[in-house]
Amino acid sequence: MKKIEASMAGTVWKVLVEVGEEVTAGQTVIILESMKMEIPVEVMMDGKISVLHTAEGEFVNDGDVLLELE
């Protein structure tokens, strides 16, 4: 399992994937909002979303696990 973490603190503005969805390296899976800026969270490898640890509207801190790939 590969864990995808938040790179900074912010609010989850948009979740672009669902559990079970196949993703490819470089794909944006979540968009965070911090200080009126949108920050895309991308996966660095191909895989399948196994767990989502967050939902739209939730606040996350730097280093929080957002999702896991298998």
Score class of each variant (00 low, 15 high):
E56A: 13
K14A: 00
E5H: 03
K2H: 10
E21C: 00
E68P: 08
V15A: 08
M44W: 01
G10T: 08
D62R: 12
K14R: 10
V15N: 05
S50V: 14
L67S: 05
A25M: 04
K48G: 07
T28S: 11
V60T: 02
I49Y: 11
V12K: 03
I4K: 01
T28V: 15
I31V: 15
E21R: 11
A9Q: 03
S7G: 13
S34D: 11
I31T: 08
I31N: 09
E5V: 05
G10C: 09
A9V: 02
M35S: 12
G57C: 04
L67V: 06
I39P: 00
M37L: 14
I4L: 13
E68K: 10
V17K: 07
A55H: 08
D64N: 11
E22P: 15
I31Y: 05
G63D: 13
I49E: 05
G57F: 05
G47A: 09
A25V: 05
L66E: 06
D46Q: 02
V17D: 03
A55C: 02
E42S: 09
K48A: 00
E58T: 01
V60L: 05
G63E: 09
E58K: 10
D64C: 03
V29K: 06
E33H: 06
K2A: 07
G47C: 12
E18Q: 12
V23C: 02
V43I: 10
L69P: 06
V17H: 08
M1H: 08
E56R: 00
F59I: 00
G20V: 10
I31E: 12
D62H: 09
G26Y: 07
K14V: 01
K3I: 06
G20T: 07
A9T: 13
E18P: 03
L52P: 02
G57A: 02
D46A: 10
E42L: 04
V17W: 08
L67I: 10
E5G: 00
I4A: 09
M45D: 15
M8W: 06
T11E: 15
A6Y: 03
N61K: 14
G57L: 04
S50D: 07
V29P: 10
E70A: 07
